[in-house]
Amino acid sequence: MEDTKDLVSEIQGELQDLTTSLSEVVKSIHELTDPIAESHKKIPGAALQLEKINAQTEEAAHRMIDKTESITRVADEIIGDLGKLCRSIPAEYSEQNPSIIKIAKSIESKVRQNMCDAEVIQIALQFQDITSQQLSYASILIDDIEQKLHNLLNIFFGEQAPERLISLVQKRVFDPNADNNPNEDTQESVDCLVEELKNKLGE
């Protein structure tokens, strides 16, 4: 009888330990899963932020293009008006005042320089398309992380796991290697390869 009592007490003790240790395990699981669930919840915000950056750079690029188009249009008008002005000056007068034509040519040259600068600015805005592709790639990576976090939550919570967040990433095709600063000789190398291929393919 004493032996049975000891055994029961021993089992009770073990059960108590087991309960305590299970509580610890549950606490540890919560410590582990809470940050996962928290990170999981933050994913759409991160994806949306990338979309927002993309939309804003697109908008800014268009505003810049509007400006460069306007500069070019005005420059064209100035060159046209200068031409008209020069043609309207009587030959006698311009012969007596050669500096007039010289000044007109200098103005035209400066206006043309402005047009070239506007073109350089516009061409530099290609960064928007390239950055947009890089952001799309980052969005896909975030989407992948969300899937992995969701898989982890499924392991811990089964059917009670939070639902897979519907991807807020705008699906866009992109080149993951898109680069704003390719090597200076990239186009040259491409040209060489193109020529080589043309010869091979018999064009």
């Binding site: 061409i123 290609q126 960064f127 390719p182 491409v190 193109v194 291929l197 393919l201 064009e203």
Partner: peptide, 19 residues
Amino acid sequence: IVQAMKAGVNSYIVKPFTP
């Protein structure tokens, strides 16, 4: 580039390009 040329592209430019 090989794929593009085989498909029938006449030439190939890498972005960002110059005018």
